[in-house]
Design a protein around this nucleic acid. Sequence first.
RNA 1: GCCUUGGUGGCGGAAUUGGUAGACGCGCUGGAUUCAAAAUCCAGUUCUUUCGAGAGUGUGGGUUCGAUUCCCACCCAAGGUACCA
Length: 957
Amino acid sequence: MSSYHFNDIEAKWQANWAKNNTFKAKNPSDSNAELPPSYYVLDMFPYPSGAGLHVGHPLGYIASDVYARYKRHKGFNVLHPMGYDSFGLPAEQYAIQTGQHPAETTKVNIEGGVDKSGKQIEGYRRQLDRIGFSFDWSREVRTSNPEYYKWTQWIFIQLFESWYDEKQDKARPISDLISIFSSEGNTTVQATCDANTESFTAEEWTNLSEAAQQKILLKYRLTYLAETEVNWCPQLGTVLANDEIVNGVSERGGYPVVRKKMKQWSMRITAYAQRLLDGLQTIDWPQPLKDSQTNWIGRSEGASVTFSVKDHDATIDVFTTRPDTIFGVSFMTLAPEHELVGEITSEAQQQAVNEYIEATAKRSERERMADVKTISGVFTGAYAIHPFSGKEIPIWIGDYVLAGYGTGAVMSVPCGDQRDYDFAKHFAIEIPNIFKGVDISEAAFADKENTIITNSDFLNDLSYKEATKKAIEALEAKGHGTGKINYRLRDAVFSRQRYWGEPFPVYYKNGLPQMIALEHLPLTLPEVEKYLPTEDGEPPLGRADVWAWDTKANKVVANTLVDDETVFPLELNTMPGWAGSSCYMFRYMDPNNSDALAATEAMRYWDSVDLYVGGSEHATGHLLYSRFWVKFLYDRGHLLVDEPIKKLINQGMILGESAFVHRVEGEHKLVSAGLANNYNTQPIHADVSLVNTSNELDVAAFKQWRTEFEDAEFITEGEGTFKVSREVEKMSKSKYNVVSPDEICDRYGADTLRMYEMFLGPLEQAKPWNTAGITGVHSFLKKLWKLYHNGANNSFQVTDKPASKDSLKTLHKTIKKVEEDIENFSFNTSVSTFMIAVNELGAQKCNSKEVLQPLLVLISPYAPHIAEELWNKLGHPESIATAQFPVFDEKHLVESSKEYPISFNGKMRFTLELPLDMSKDDIEAAVMAHEKTAHYLEGRSPKKVIVVPGKIVNIVG
RNA sequence: GCCUUGGUGGCGGAAUUGGUAGACGCGCUGGAUUCAAAAUCCAGUUCUUUCGAGAGUGUGGGUUCGAUUCCCACCCAAGGUACCA
């Protein structure tokens, strides 16, 4: 073989790797000998959609693969697995449309084939294989596989069987809590629980019925049933996510959506708020990502204050970060959903309040929050009593107060908070000023630092800090409040009214949830005839005929057998998307274990993920929930670590370059982009595959694709060429700018694709894909190939002759730079470095093995196929994958002289080669003696000459 | 609004702690090779220029012998988001 036949080479080595299990990671149980140190490189696993991969998807996988391969060269036993997050909404939507079982379409999306509607699907696995990843496929997991989701169900049960002890600051078995209740009641225990939990004594507890006890325990369990507000769409009979709602109506169909309470499973993640915050200090994640988790958890310090309500028994609790401004309160605002609203509203205000509540229910939470300008609210007719002054304070409701944050009520201090200020102005409520020497006629004064309190009784003349402390002390003394830390973080709703998700291992006995024991798991998804909600609005599992739990036989039986004695109905909701992805990193450590999530021995060896690569869009979803579950399982002794991921890198998105043809407004004419300015035009997306690298449109093909333009006039420029304009957008099918990795592999090969993706720019940054530029890296690989094929007729030829000094220098500076780059995840600069090295070695006519052999190891993480082929030709029967990484030797880079830049007033004018061991004074003398120096000084005498040996000379004057 | 990231040639981007701005690649220009094309190779390519030089890393200031890099203020773009009491 004399020229670079990438297609043959790549197919050959991919087959070879698969056959020899080259990338199978060894577990301690696989070998008696001691294993090398472990290194765990993980990618966020993909959701296998029917659209297949585009060139943006593999970016992170290529980066992590380079790193994984590098670590193997460095002697590590590398775990680099891949799997599929295969439960999810698109498969379910597709099932609704086509009637195919989501399990089938998911399988086709992964493994390839033809689906029932005749669509030919390549399959994720084959697409991934073509790129030459070093994944250990023997460890593949699929979240929709029952053997996998058995463990997701198991984790759910563990959460149900646990409570959070705030004294020990960890989760404990629920049995511990039961024994505490029977010996001391619940007054001494400090546990995270529902806000409305009443206190009881040991005696009261023991006298409660079993059902009553279970109800109380549900208020403590880390997963619990609660009434939660959801976006309910009556027409669709289903719950919608925030982003499925546009302008208050459903995206699909445009039906009205209302806020409705629904009994749902929730996760008590709030118990872990502080630890999730603290844990961020211990992990090496990008600061922006840590910031968004910090903001999401939203810790704020302040006080909880209780206001009594005039003429009612009720009290209103508020949380405030400014207890120092308590004397500035001039009204209270409750969220319209606040539970007291119905109770305290006066008869006169009843109608206005009801109308307002109804109007609010129609607006989504996101809408309410996005709309900052509209001020709305209604007076309830009720008054609260100020805890210190005893003044009556009108109670309003307003939708700027959110039911889900804090207590759903605020003490409004208009002089100190802009929203309260705007509200007060709008409704002509008084705005007492409690800040000394501050003008509040135009706006509220929110500056804490420069605050001196006045008109505030015992808080007068105090600073923010002093007043806050004193106010809290006074509140505590009066029993009207206490210092408090509040978190924005809410408990996570865990129920989904969908089919294609993990079933809950739960059945209901007298309306109370019961868990199915581990030995009977997995509880597999039942068959249904349609994937839609039932006519009475129950989730799709409500359509299953065989969906009841027989507690005697311990199996799923027909619904007709339900007798509420031994056979009970099963839960109809399924788990959300993040359930299966929260702990999958541990399953890869020991994926076929049927007794545990993973064996202790395997977990001890692999520890946690050393490097995780994925998008930043998961910052507050997946990455927060995963940390929560891991901390929980750690508390309960099921995991050995309390953080799943040591280091994380976010890869940026690869954007597409959309192509636009310009249509002349109102006419059946299309005009070439260069002439578009002469017309009033409207851009229309053209498929990028119809456009060449010079932006010229294949007009005939375009006409065939968009037949409505078949007889349109095409106004061309130059010699009959019709050009499109380009714009960078997200890569997406709907924008016709998708480039598939398969077409790149066909034309240029996987090694070119891998290198080009790395070459595009810094990993973390978003960058546009431009296929035109790929020829650069492709011809680099051809040059690399040539370096080893300079014999007669371009035959393979590498000699044992010692390399020249220059070639060794090239090699070693490349080793140094590439090693630094990989360690810093600066893959784009490595590719440049390789290009420089190959250009130099080519110019040096280097063909000695001493240099060309280590060079292959350097390149192999990036372009593994060509490296394997040449490695093999060099006479190595074994794979290059575990060859030792070349060791950098400084001695080849030692220089005796330096090309000094000589600058005048900081501007470089010329260079001068001088020995590196020359003294400062001699350098100055040499520079001053140079003829060009006089020229640039133009007769001036220098004020100062700065000489930095080995760096620069700067002449000032 | 807030948070985050970024702004350098025609384009993607490079510049280790403040020390030769524009590496490397694309594109473009010219040339070689070819019947021709592709491919390959060679040279050039920040802008302005009176060919001496001058300007130049979003804008305006500052620190410094020297700033893409550090500080202050501002502008623009992208992503995220929560009216958070």
